[in-house]
Lab assay of single mutants.
Amino acid sequence: HNLTITQGKLFFHYNPKLCLSEIHKMEEVSGTKGRQERNDIALKTNGDQASCENELLKFSYIRTSFDKILLRWEPYWPPDFRDLLGFMLFYKEAPYQNVTEFDGQDACGSNSWTVVDIDPPLRSNDPKSQNHPGWLMRGLKPWTQYAIFVKTLVTFSDERRTYGAKSDIIYVQTDATNPSVPLDPISVSNSSSQIILKWKPPSDPNGNITHYLVFWERQAEDSELFELDYCLKGLKLPSRTWSPPFESEDSQKHNQSEYEDSAGECCSCPKTDSQILKELEESSFRKTFEDYLHNVVFVPRKTSSGTGAEDPRPSRKRRSLGDVGNVTVAVPTVAAFPNTSSTSVPTSPEEHRPFEKVVNKESLVISGLRHFTGYRIELQACNQDTPEERCSVAAYVSARTMPEAKADDIVGPVTHEIFENNVVHLMWQEPKEPNGLIVLYEVSYRRYGDEELHLCVSRKHFALERGCRLRGLSPGNYSVRIRATSLAGNGSWTEPTYFYVTDYLDVPSNIA
């Protein structure tokens, strides 16, 4: 807008934040220059609390790290170098490059900038070799853009010569660093050979998330399962459950009422301010606690030095998902009996873990797994792929695949051998790939016309006998059925096997 004052003059007093240069501009645009008398524009009460600059400061050096910015700028000295009290560095987070010096300023003089007072450097006698002032900004957020400017702080001049310097606002972004852990990993099994893994992005990506790394490792069953005799009275049979499938998407929606109208769909109840505040506090606490764990609990591995020492970490090797089922080394339970199943799973520490690289999504279907087997899954978020990966501390989750139908069934015939004193040795093959492992066998036998009897055969007993022995049988026709019990439950009964026990007292003698 054009402003013209045809008559009258300007009068400025007691404006401590208004620089004289701005008042002189007002004289020019209003056409009143030359009308004012000496005392109409006070030299001592206008701009006496402001830094009124008329020179431009330029930054000469900028260096960044993930949490620091090192700045240096060209030296500046007023005509009387004693008038320079120091520099004021202003900075704040700036997602967009549209910041002005006066953003967030209120009537009390406060604003949204963080201000650092910096002492002037030592003055050199040689004007050509003056030290460049600077400042190291610490405690910054990774991968965050900051708006920065600097200006001088000078003393009051009796001659009211307006001098000083100020830089333009520059924008500097800190470097990326390792992201925080992925949030809320959930693993479920939808079949006997697959596990579905879902997660949420890290709360602090500290860069642009480029991919996720998912490692999985087959877990050995508890050692007590191999040692305890679950045929003993009072000892509860062990059981394991597989990871249940995901709930429906509708039930997972946030901010939804727990109660549904019987007449149909209901609208979600909005969260109160107290609920939102509580969630923010919980989120802040979780982030602080995660940072504490990362800094205190997890110790970084030592990389190899120039002395030739090897990095103890196993090298990563990509495998196809079809090879995942046989990740671990199978060892027989008892070496003397080769027909026992290889369900003991000690994992070799030198073995390469299978892994998958996930790009542009937060889910993965891990296939080719062994049925009813526990897996430990390790999830890392990465925001750099080359020249070397920059990934987060791992988040861990466990899951067990679903049982395989008929995996616990005894394959092959049940054979028998009759000894003296009416002892019958029953023999059968253990299931080759049971659900988890076989903890015991149930032997059901009966003599024709009598009630059915049951015998429990422990895992250890089966390994020693290759089956079991029935003792003290009365003469007669017998039928026997056997079924295995694994961590997933009972298998199917075998087809009945028949044998006849004679009275050993009636056996004919070869003595003449």
Rank of each mutant, 00 (worst) to 15 (best):
N206K: 07
G207C: 01
N208V: 09
H211M: 04
H211T: 05
Y212L: 03
V214Q: 00
F215L: 08
F215W: 01
Q219L: 13
A220R: 07
A220E: 15
S223Q: 10
F226K: 04
E227L: 11
Y230E: 05
C231S: 03
L232T: 13
K233A: 14
G234E: 14
L235N: 07
L235W: 12
L237T: 07
P238M: 07
P238N: 11
S239N: 06
T241N: 09
W242E: 09
W242T: 07
P244L: 11
P245L: 13
S251K: 14
Q256Y: 13
Q256D: 13
E265V: 07
K271T: 09
T272H: 13
D273T: 04
L277K: 14
E279T: 11
S283E: 14
S284H: 10
K287L: 06
T288I: 15
F289V: 12
H294R: 10
V297T: 09
V297F: 13
P300I: 06
K302N: 10
T303I: 09
S304T: 07
G306R: 14
T307H: 12
R318C: 09
R318H: 12
G322T: 10
D323P: 08
D323G: 14
D323F: 14
D323M: 15
N326T: 05
N326S: 14
T328K: 11
V331T: 15
P332S: 13
P332C: 04
P338T: 11
P338K: 05
N339S: 11
S341D: 04
S342W: 02
T343E: 09
S344A: 07
V345P: 15
T347L: 13
P349R: 14
P354E: 11
F355C: 13
F355T: 08
E356Y: 12
K357G: 04
S363H: 04
S363F: 08
S367K: 06
L369G: 02
L369A: 03
F372H: 12
Y375M: 06
Q384P: 07
P387D: 08
P387L: 09
E388N: 13
E389F: 12
R390T: 07
V393P: 01
A394P: 07
A395D: 09
A395Q: 14
V397W: 05
S398C: 14
M402A: 10
P403Y: 08
P403E: 06
E404L: 04
A405E: 12
K406Y: 05
K406F: 09
A407H: 13
D409P: 00
I410P: 04
G412D: 12
T415R: 11
T415M: 13
F419M: 04
N422P: 01
N422V: 03
P431N: 03
P434D: 00
V439G: 08
E451L: 12
E452L: 09
H454Q: 12
L455I: 08
C456T: 02
K460Y: 05
A463N: 14
A463C: 11
L464V: 10
L464N: 15
G467Y: 04
G472M: 10
S474E: 14
G476H: 00
Y478M: 00
V480R: 01
R483P: 00
A484E: 04
N490G: 15
S492R: 04
T494W: 01
P496Q: 03
V501P: 01
D503M: 07
L505E: 08
V507R: 13
S509V: 12
N510W: 07
